[in-house]
Design a protein around this nucleic acid. Structure first.
Length: 886
RNA sequence: GGAGGCGUAGCUCAGCUGGUCAGAGCGUUCGGUUCACAUCCGAAAGGUCGAGGGUUCGAACCCCCCCGUCUCCACCA
């Protein structure tokens, strides 16, 4: 049975992809082992959240990784792509809380243990969803090594790191002002706050002096914080206010006596020049307060309601309180005016709620000592970003880094390994709860209720997943990893933190390269988002077009670091391309002998087109390999496509048909061999990008070969480069194009075969002669004649002149002289244009003397070529004109 | 207030270290039932590479400035 029987006219990914993926899995191709005989190549996956569903961002990110890992696997590396998921403390906790809300329960209604049981149940139920979606993408992850950030081992790593950093004094607990989300009811790190511009107001308020000598006007965007004011600050250089410093004001609505203080934080000339100071609810005010030893009066609880310090406003929501306070100030005549004011408001990255700066006791990582070596490592190039410009973003952030607030008032996550003695207050940081307080001996000890920022555990991902803190063989073999692939939106959250964690814990950067990609946007260039409802589901695309088409569309035309739009037309193109390759294979198989005996192959019988296609294929191998090594995957894919579709399908296969159709042809076997050779090479080059269809085709082509994914990456072989064949085929192709062009312009229908006469000599004549069968076929010619150049054109013929050859098509009554003249005149214009450009260069002394010799020579050759063409074309035009006049 | 990206055919975008770089796909127009493929084949039209200046023998590519646009960081009450 011929393999072609398994190949319908159109490739259908349905069913095929799952079957192939299961086969790969069952063969264990994805599994990596410690193998001293091979060089390792490692990628750790950016672990998707267990709350996540596959979106286009994941699809792009993981396709990139899969392309790279498949490429490296074929190159012979021991490749590990280590997968896993992230517990995503805040996101998952929010999901659980939501789910409980639907049951009419609040978080407070259950115990911590009950809550965690729900969370684990949730993880069991949904945590695998994203994993199975990644498999649909074709991801060749080593699933045997799948990890979860709250696995026992990874949790152990978290505790270990916490302990180590604590012992080095790099983790501390402090009473500070932090960003707080009243809805999530937890502290946030600086980067979890998203600033967005909102319409707000400037309220101008008079604060009366204690001594009754008038009042001082301040401006604020958050009047409710007035309840916590402890001072009003002015710039020490402000002449207007200098005399007032030291005097006391009466805080409106509250009646508290507060001083006027001088502090440089107040900017001269902005607003009223006087700033109310609320250390408990504003980071800048907090700093001012610290400098001046001011009291901190918190006026809100953790959920954003005014607390007992707020007097009659106590119990009101912060925004309610704002309204009420403005109203009351107005009533007391202290509100001077209200102005509209656009300003940035911090919102919670997770839920969008306005963040409230809040003084609380939190755990922090001291960043400066960790950041320095991390900056240095990237400067030295131990880790390089692709594209490099992202290093600036990294440096900028790392150099100005603030301490990292790592404690969260959440339950789902790694609980902070700190214990407190209830009796003496001693803090004990340890792996296990101590039996008794080392200071006072009390056994009344409790663990810190807080958990760690999710990113604290993700920061350890490149080594915790490999077994750290144990010195496993995997760790020493696969670490440091080779490339990390992620979006630019996650550089601060994750990449930077992995770098300093890797250096600190492992003494070595976690990865050599960071490949940064952009966002996948919708057709209009908008960010895909839930609220806009413009997201495109990758799984839908896979259903409609197949995984390969999706992958292709995400990689082609994409360059590192840049956003891209998702266009359905691209997916269609990709599907069509797969189909093209599919059919090229069908063609090959149809024209192969049952069991071709390639041992009888005689390479000396290769024709020009054989050598030509092999030569070009060879260049493609080199270029594609180079591009892929540099992570220019989009460029690589384009080159494979162009070669396959244009050179291979449209030219080589067409040129070679006469040889294949003639079973007696003496070079038929060679042709079959080359066809097969090119095809399988293209399949291999393409496999990382389109793994399924290439595997399916490969299976049809080679019944006895195991799998393309474990085959060897094509090698560049300089021996195959054949400039002579390239030149010959260049002439043949140009000739065919010229003939087609003439025929189209003259409106000659395909059914009307015409005679074609070539006037050429020597080498060129021989080339044309040898390819006459193909030219006849592709040029719709009734016959091909090669003659010596007499300078005379056959009667009533259209003509084209290409270097070394004149082509005549006697059209008899079909000839339209006017059209022919117009065509030739246009041709002449082009030639003249080229000629003047070349001559311009050559007449430039600077060019002659300074440009590389080779280039000058090239231009001179060009001049000669175009001059010859010009003369010939001119002559043709004259001939035609003469014809018209006769 | 800092930093950066983008602005190339109607649309979406490639163009690495300056010298066939003016390209691709889609779309458009015209023509095709060629025995692999209409998810196809052939032919064509379309751009002074945002504007201006500079460096250079030579610039879409380097420098300056401007315009438009997007993003990140900082965050002035």
């Amino acid at each position: 049975m011929k393999s072609i029987d398994n190949m319908p006219k159109t490739y259908d990914p349905k069913g095929t992809e799952d079957r192939i993926y299961e086969n790969w899995m069952s063969k264990g191709y994805f599994h990596a082992k410690v193998n001293p005989d091979k060089k390792p190549f490692t990628i750790v996956i950016p672990p998707p959240n267990i709350t996540g569903q596959l979106h286009m961002g994941h699809a792009l990110d993981n396709t990139l990784q899969d392309v790279i890992i498949r490429f490296k696997r074929m190159q012979g590396y021991e490749t590990l792509w280590l997968p896993g998921t992230d517990h995503a403390s805040i996101a998952t906790e929010a999901k659980i809380v939501d789910k409980m809300a639907s049951e009419g329960l609040r978080k407070e209604d259950v115990t911590r243990e009950q809550f965690l049981e729900r969370a684990w149940a949730w993880r069991r139920e949904y945590g695998g969803r994203i994993v199975s979606q990644l498999k649909k993408l074709g991801s060749s992850c080593d699933w045997e090594r799948e990890r979860f950030t709250m696995d026992e081992g990874l949790s152990e790593a978290v505790t270990e790191v916490f302990l180590r950093l604590y012992e080095k004094g790099l983790i501390y607990k402090g009473e500070r002002i932090t960003n707080w989300c009243p809805r999530c009811n937890t502290s946030l790190s600086d980067i979890e706050v998203i600033y967005e511009e909102q319409e707000g107001h400037f309220w101008y308020i008079n604060y009366p002096f204690e001594d009754g000598t008038g009042s001082l006007m301040i401006a604020t965007t958050r009047p409710e914080t007035l309840l916590g004011d402890v001072a009003v600050a002015v710039n020490p250089e402000d002449e207007k206010y200098k005399p007032l410093v030291g005097k006391n004001l009466i805080l409106p609505l509250v009646g508290r006596k507060i001083p006027v203080i001088a502090d440089e934080y107040v900017e001269l000339g902005f607003g009223t020049g006087a700033v109310k100071i609320t250390p408990a609810h504003d980071p800048n005010d907090f700093n001012v307060g610290q400098r001046h030893g001011l009291e901190i009066i918190p006026i809100m609880d953790s959920k954003g309601f005014i607390n007992g310090n707020g007097g009659k406003y106590s119990g009101l929501d912060r925004f309610e309180a704002r309204k009420q306070i403005v109203k009351d100030l107005e009533a007391e005549g202290l509100l001077v005016k209200t102005e509209p004011h656009r300003h940035n408001v911090g919102t919670c990255q997770r839920c969008g709620t306005t963040v409230e700066p809040f003084v609380s006791s939190q755990w922090y990582v001291k960043m400066k000592p960790l950041a320095e070596p991390a900056i240095e490592a990237v400067r030295k190039g131990d880790t390089a970003f692709v594209p490099q410009r992202f290093e600036n973003i990294y440096f900028n952030w790392m150099e100005n880094i603030q301490d990292w607030c790592i404690s969260r008032q959440l339950w789902w996550g790694h609980r902070i390994p700190a214990y407190y003695c209830n009796k003496c207050g001693r803090i004990i940081v340890a792996k296990e709860a101590p039996e008794a307080c080392p200071d006072c001996g009390s056994d009344d000890i409790y663990q810190d209720p807080d958990t760690l920022d999710t990113w604290f555990s993700s920061a350890l991902w490149p080594f915790s997943t490999l077994g750290w803190p144990r010195r496993t063989p995997e760790l020493s073999y696969f670490y440091p990893t080779d490339v990390l692939v992620t979006g630019y939106d996650i550089i601060f959250f994750w990449v930077a933190r992995m770098i300093f964690s890797g250096i600190e814990q492992m003494g070595e950067v976690p990865f050599r390269k960071v490949l940064i990609h952009g966002l996948v946007r919708d057709e209009l260039g908008r960010k895909m988002s839930k609220s806009l409802g413009n997201g495109i589901d990758p799984l839908e695309i896979i259903k409609d077009y197949g995984t390969d088409a999706l992958r292709y569309s995400l990689i082609s035309g994409n360059s590192p670091g840049n956003d891209q739009r998702f266009l359905t037309s691209k997916v269609e193109f990709a599907r069509n391309f797969g189909n093209k390759l599919w059919n090229a294979t069908r063609f090959a198989l149809m024209n192969f002998d049952e069991n071709p005996d390639f041992s009888r192959l005689d390479k000396s019988k290769y024709t020009a087109e054989d050598r030509w296609i092999l030569s070009n294929l060879n260049y493609v191998i080199k270029e594609v390999t180079d591009n892929m090594e540099r992570y220019e995957l989009g460029v690589a894919l384009t080159k494979i496509t162009d070669f396959t579709w244009d050179l291979f399908c449209d030219w080589y296969i067409e040129l070679v048909k006469p040889r294949l159709f003639d079973t007696a042809n003496s070079t038929r076997l060679e042709c079959q061999y080359v066809l097969n050779q090119v095809l399988v090479t293209v399949l291999k080059l393409l496999h990382p990008f389109m793994p399924f269809i290439t595997e399916e085709i490969y299976g049809n082509l080679y019944k006895d070969c195991e799998s393309i994914m474990i085959s060897a990456w094509p090698a560049y072989d300089p021996e195959l480069n054949d400039p002579a064949a390239e030149k010959s085929l260049g002439t043949v192709i140009d000739a065919i194009k010229a003939i087609r062009n003439i025929r189209t312009e003259m409106n000659v229908p395909n059914s009307n075969r015409t005679e074609v006469i070539f006037a050429a000599e020597g080498e060129v004549a021989s080339v044309i002669g040898k390819s006459s069968g193909a030219i006849q076929r592709l040029g719709y010619a009734s016959s091909i004649t090669v003659t010596a150049d007499t300078g005379e054109a056959p009667k009533d013929s259209a003509s084209a002149i290409i270097p070394g050859v004149k082509i005549y098509i006697p059209l008899r009554q079909l000839i339209d002289i006017d059209k022919e003249l117009a065509r030739l005149t246009r041709e002449l214009d082009n030639i003249n244009g080229e000629l003047s450009r070349v001559r311009g260069k050559l007449s430039n002394e600077g060019f002659i003397s300074k440009a590389p010799e080779k280039l000058v020579l090239q231009e001179k050759e060009k001049e000669a070529k175009f001059e010859a063409l010009r003369l010939e074309t001119l002559k043709r035009i004259d001939d035609i004109k003469a014809l018209m006049n006769s």
